[in-house]
Design a protein around this nucleic acid. Structure first.
Length: 874
DNA sequence: TAATGTTTCCC
DNA sequence: CGGGAAACATT
């Protein structure tokens, strides 16, 4: 019987450990020539898993198979690993069907896969087996007390699951419809005894050549092992073991060493369950760290959880990492963690740094999905109550007695960041009045032009005329300018938290005067540039421009802007005050349309953040600025600022929604604000924020947006529409349900309970989401489907090829003869061929085929086809 | 007791 | 199906 020329190794374990696995022994007929003392060589690496128990005894080969080398030794290859997280169900939960153990690369919608094994280098029909084992890193494998069940027909059977592989099927086998039953603690020992007994019997059959019952001694031995093992067994991790056997006379001879899948973790356990950050109260921290953050998480164990921060470079390498600081007292009931952020590696960052935050479970080094987090620049501003001295403006900084030849030396390294042309080298120093005029012609602001044309006149006024006269001129202009009517008083403003001191006002006036005087006497002197920079360059300090804007001294502002423009010192416009606001922030806040307009013309940056990283656009929304202000801001050449986030992670759009500012919302949307941008704290989209705010007008407006993705889920996997219909707000619910009807969102799942509202009216409102597609409707849909999708074809072919039902189907379709007449190429799927013939040649309908399959009890295949039709129809 | 772990139940 | 949570058990 064993004389066939087949590729079969008979191996012998080094140690006989009946508790670990069925021993693989030489059959009785050849056992005498395989003594234990034989020299062994190493197993070929192609075994996929190292297992010292399986060593090929060279002298004990059962067969000489034409001098086959190790390269041609048979081995098992796992084609598709099982999914690594799966819910183990208790027996009491196994009523109805739950998901089956699918393959690792399984994809919900595209292609379902299942654990798949291939027997390589073998050329005869063989038995492959799948069973459930304990997952050990050590090379010590024992059956697991959990049960690996497989649905077969209506019932289900326990492992081991045996199946044949043949050359026709490429020596592969797909194990589908399997589930894992969590054996209750009290049943661990009996279950282990049962499995060990089974394996022992197989081993005896191999050794003794026939099947017999276990002796009492053997049973007691098994019982002892089961009891001790039950105490150490890990109930939340299992793996699959695959064997290959050559069957002869009812005895199973191993063809090669078994292989083990990677671990399968119980999705339900806090020890192995999925880690997830569900929400955080803040998504930023100053670079110095220490900010207290609350995060909500899926179930964790307090002694076994860390919060990791890390930064990636462009190639996704970790360039920095640290951990959130907390004790296990800071873990609230397994579902929330309060921690302090670690300091970033560089405490003096100049721009925000994007990092990631994730949960890490030390016990199995599992990690959650990472969420974005931002380290912010410390604005270093004066805060009331802090010990830091308030910036002073002593007169020496603005020394008016500077003679023209004593001006500060040219600021050669006036390196104005972000501005390639910011260096003095690039500045045209010899400015003639003709050039000034030329420069001004390029400015397309009428207002600016007008003021500039008045420059000479003002100039003379400013220098020669008495102060009273000058003031009255300026005043009259301010009053006559209609655009300044919206001007907000600088007093009582929440945003610019202080008004200017007398000294500051004086300083500003002085600076302007000084410059004007200098220019008058030295119209094209390069030193004017130095002077200008001298007054306006220093960041984090209130300068003349800030003050002039705050006080709405239009003439002074325009003068300074002109100087900056002509000498191309645009970066001076982005210098921040002691409150960390740029001129544009201040002008925007004060609703000074004219100044905003001219700042933009002069290329003031719209991207600079204030102490809270609010851009001027944020400020415009916060202060409910006029439409004109928004328009000016959007007229900036820089278009990247629309979606910038402040230190709370809010975009201007978020603030508009939070403030119920529909006007700002519209303006932002019209100017390209991202309507689907998720907040870093919780994944909310603008629509979701509007819904949470229950502002129906705003919700309505957002729902009309052409680019809206209404179903973007938050970190808790709730989409905005689900959130909306759970609100106790009938107006809002009406708007949402109407939207859903219009967009055919029939199958939006409602994850939260609605049963609190038992009145019929309420129920009815939701009926459109809850209703199932009736079978009539489904059949209606079938009439529009002429063929199978490739993905669907793949899936059902796999099932029908496996079960062999394709033959029955062929008969029902009157194609049985064709299929058997040699058309059927064993390399290809017979089902695929059959379905192609049926539809393309016979003209059978998909519905007809579906119904035949239903008659043949191929419920899984039927379901796949139904799903295909459903998804195609929508 | 309070917190955590296990099993059952339910939509 | 897949998920959540109540109920029960243990530490």
């Amino acid at each position: 019987m064993l004389t066939e020329n087949i590729n079969l190794y008979i191996q012998q374990p080094v140690q006989i450990d009946m508790s670990s696995y069925p021993n693989i022994l030489t059959p009785p007929s050849s056992s005498e020539d395989s003594p234990q003392s034989t020299l062994y060589n190493s197993p070929p690496s192609c075994y996929g898993i190292q297992d010292s128990a399986y060593i090929l005894p060279q002298t004990s080969l059962a067969f000489d198979f034409d001098g086959a080398t190790q390269a041609t030794a048979p081995y098992l290859r796992i084609v598709e690993q099982p999914i690594d997280r799966f819910r183990f169900r208790y027996k009491s939960e196994m009523t109805g069907t739950h998901g089956s153990l699918c393959g690792q690369t399984s994809d919900r919608s595209r292609k379902q896969t299942y654990p798949t094994i291939e027997l390589c280098n073998f050329n005869k029909r063989a038995l492959v087996r799948c069973s459930i084992y304990q997952h050990n890193t050590k090379e010590d494998h024992r059956p697991h007390a959990h049960r690996l069940i497989k649905k077969q027909g209506k019932g289900e059977v326990d492992d081991p699951h045996d199946a044949y592989v043949t050359p026709e099927e490429g020596y592969t086998y797909v194990f589908h419809s399997m589930g894992i039953i969590h054996t209750a603690k009290k049943n661990l020992v009996p279950e282990l005894i049962r499995k060990k007994g089974q394996l022992k019997k197989e081993e005896i059959a191999r050794l003794e050549g026939k099947v017999r019952d276990l002796t009492q001694k053997e049973e007691i031995e098994i019982k002892g092992l089961a009891e001790s093992e039950s105490k150490s067994i890990n109930l939340n991790v299992v793996c699959l073991r695959f064997d290959a056997f050559y069957e002869t006379n009812g005895i199973l001879l191993p063809i090669c060493p078994p292989v083990y899948s990677h671990s399968i973790n119980n999705l339900k356990s806090a020890l192995t369950g999925e880690l997830k950050i569900v929400r955080m109260d803040h998504c930023t921290s100053p670079a110095k760290g220490g900010r207290e953050i609350f995060i909500l998480v899926e179930r964790v164990t307090k002694k076994n959880i860390k919060v990791k921060f890390y930064e990636l470079d462009d190639e996704d390498n970790i360039v920095w990492e640290d951990y959130g600081k907390f004790s296990d007292l800071d873990v609230h009931h397994q579902y929330a963690i309060v921690f302090k952020t670690p300091p970033y590696k560089d405490l003096t960052i100049k721009s925000p740094v994007k990092v990631f935050i994730e949960l890490e479970r030390p016990s199995d080094r599992a990690r959650s999905e990472a969420k974005e987090f931002t380290y912010t620049v410390s604005s270093n501003i004066y805060k009331p109550g802090s010990k830091r001295a308030r910036p002073s403006y002593d007169s020496s900084s603005y020394d008016t007695s500077l003679a023209s030849d004593e001006l500060p030396v040219p600021i050669n390294n006036l390196c104005l960041e972000n501005s390639p042309t910011g260096l003095l080298d690039d500045v045209q120093l010899e400015v003639t009045s003709a050039e000034l005029q030329q420069a001004m012609r390029n400015i397309n602001s009428d207002e600016f032009q007008r003021i500039f044309n008045d420059f000479g006149q003002d100039y003379s006024l400013a220098t020669d005329a008495p102060n009273e006269f000058k003031k009255s001129v300026i005043k009259s202009r301010v009053v006559t300018s209609t655009k300044t009517s919206n001007f907000r008083s600088a007093k009582s403003r929440p945003y610019c938290q202080r008004s200017d001191s007398i000294e500051e006002t004086a300083m500003a006036k002085q600076a302007v005067l000084e410059l004007q005087n200098f220019i008058k006497t030295h119209p094209s002197d390069e030193k004017a540039v130095n002077m200008l920079c001298h007054y306006l360059k220093e960041d984090n300090k209130t300068n003349a421009l800030h003050v002039s804007i705050r006080q709405n001294e239009l003439m002074d502002v325009m003068f300074l802007l002109k100087m900056i423009y002509v000498w191309k010192q645009h970066e001076l416009l982005n210098v921040r005050s002691d409150l960390y606001e740029t001129p544009l922030h201040i002008a925007t806040y004060l609703n000074s349309e004219e100044i905003v307009a001219n700042l933009i013309v002069c290329k003031a940056s719209v991207c600079v953040g204030d102490s809270e990283m609010n851009t001027p656009l944020h400020v415009a929304v916060i202060s409910n600025a006029s439409i004109a202000i928004f328009e000016k801001l959007f007229s900036s050449e820089d278009k990247t600022f629309v979606d910038m986030e402040n230190n709370e992670g809010n975009t201007a759009l978020n603030i508009a929604i939070e403030n119920g500012n529909l006007k700002a919302l519209k303006l932002l949307c019209l100017n390209g604000a991202d309507i689907n941008k998720q907040h870093k704290k919780n994944g909310y989209t603008p629509l979701r924020f509007a819904i949470e705010k229950q502002n129906v007008d705003i919700v309505k407006y957002i729902l009309q947006h052409k680019d809206l993705q209404a179903l973007v889920e938050d970190f808790q996997d709730i989409n905005p529409l689900q959130a909306a219909i759970n609100k106790d707000n009938s107006e809002l619910v009406d708007v949402i349900t109407q939207y859903m009807k219009q967009n055919n969102y029939v199958n939006v799942e409602i994850k939260n309970e609605v049963e609190d509202y038992s009145d019929d009216d309420f129920e009815e409102k939701f009926s459109i989401k809850l209703e199932q597609i009736s079978s009539e409707e489904l059949r209606e849909m079938y009439t529009n489907v002429k063929n199978f999708t490739p993905a669907c074809l793949d899936d059902i072919s796999q099932i029908l090829d496996q079960s062999g039902t394709w033959q029955n189907l062929a008969d029902l379709l009157d194609l049985g003869h064709l299929m058997r007449s040699g058309l059927c190429d064993s390399k290809n799927s017979p089902t695929k061929l059959l379905l192609k013939l049926a539809i393309e040649t016979n003209g059978d309908s998909v519905l007809q085929i579906r119904d035949f399959l239903e008659n043949l009890d191929e419920t899984q295949a039927v379901e796949i086809i139904d799903n295909m039709v459903r998804t195609q129809f929508m």
